[in-house]
């Protein structure tokens, strides 16, 4: 298999290969004044001419795999080459697991190309062996642990094949990624998807227990790194999803809204882990959370909320000053009407 490095010698053109002499290459038709034309390299133009020639005759054979692979390596966004390749694989009953192994290499080289992942999905619909795919994806996260396509593919695999044995490793997997980077929002999102969006699996019927486990998990994470929007969003997300009012969190949140020197000597309380000693406090996300609690209470508490918004605009989150001013206006309007 040729590697896509630039130092490798250029492969021979199809026009110079006797075994392709039966194919009539077809030039791209373009009228006189092309808009944003691409000045193709000879090797690309040669392959594209032969590809149009093959598509015209409808040939589906082993050599078409060679041709489409060359085009894909030169231009991985060429969706028609992918489409024709897939149809050819099926037509000649090629070994799709061989194809998947080739894709292992191409996926890492072209991590951000839609087509690479779409093709893989089509292959998996035929091969139907999702477990090894999860292992492969974990490997690609070493290149980029926030790659949108890869996460999307993983979520699709889990939801589509929806097999208990597939799901069983997901929380440990997320944990590993969050240990490496506690601010990896894709991993937090995946945790929410795994716990709350994928139905109830064996051993998870006790939703109270699951909820308590998740609250402890996210609170522990916040106590280690309070200034982490991903964890606060997760906390809000699980409360919203389970219909629990934010006010239930007041004992946990309050210590995060105070400066470091106002912190009391901590008692060990699993439900309310305190901020770590070196935390940067007060934490803006906690102040915002507490203000939301007061706002929901309404009445006199609204004034407490406006004080907190004022402190966000003036001190803790100056970049969003205009937004906090807007929240104050809206809050005051709500108690006047």
């Amino acid at each position: 298999m040729s590697s896509p490095t630039t130092s490798a010698p250029e492969p021979p053109r199809y026009a110079d290969r006797p075994e392709w002499s039966d194919v009539i290459p077809v030039e791209q038709y373009e009228n006189v004044n092309p808009l944003a034309p691409i000045f193709y390299k000879d090797i690309y133009k040669d392959a594209a001419d032969y590809f149009r020639g093959i598509v015209k005759t409808g040939e589906k054979s082993q050599r078409v795999l060679d041709l489409t692979e060359r085009i894909i390596r030169l231009n991985p966004a060429h969706y028609t080459a992918w489409q024709y390749r897939y149809e050819t694989l099926l037509a000649i009953e090629a070994d799709l697991e061989d194809e998947l192994r080739l894709m292992d290499e191409l996926a890492i080289t072209y991590l951000k190309t839609y087509q690479v992942w779409h093709h893989r999905r089509l292959l998996m619909l035929k091969i139907r062996k999702p477990a090894t795919e999860l292992v492969f994806i974990a490997k690609t996260f070493r290149e980029d642990a926030k790659n949108y396509h890869t996460w999307s593919y993983r979520q699709w695999l889990l939801a589509y094949f929806n097999d208990d044995s597939l799901w069983s490793g997901e929380l440990d997997f997320v944990d590993e990624l969050l240990n490496a980077d506690i601010r990896n929002n894709s991993a937090w999102h995946h945790r929410f998807f795994t716990v709350f969006q994928s139905g109830v699996r064996d051993g998870e019927q006790d939703t109270e227990r699951i909820l308590r486990r998740e609250l402890i998990y996210v609170k522990q994470s916040i106590s280690l790194a309070p200034n982490n929007a991903s964890a606060w969003n997760y906390l809000r997300g699980i409360l919203d999803h389970n219909g629990i009012p934010y006010s239930k969190m007041i004992a946990f949140v309050q210590p995060y809204t105070l400066p470091n020197d106002d912190q009391k000597a901590d008692l060990v309380d699993l439900d309310n882990p305190p901020p770590s000693k070196d935390a940067h406090l007060p934490c803006a996300a906690a102040v915002e959370f507490l203000a939301d609690i007061y706002e929901a209470e309404g009445g006199d508490s609204m004034l407490k909320a406006t004080e907190l918004w004022k402190s966000l605009g003036n001190e803790h989150d100056v970049a969003r000053k205009k937004y906090w001013e807007y929240r104050i206006r809206e809050g005051l309007r709500a108690i006047q009407t």
Partner: peptide
């Protein structure tokens, strides 16, 4: 300049030229 032509290094926009335009 882009409308008048793109180098081969941009070949991946070939299947999205209308959007580029």
């Amino acid at each position: 300049r882009c409308l008048s032509g793109l180098p081969d290094s941009q070949v991946d926009v070939d299947s999205g030229r209308m959007a580029l335009a």
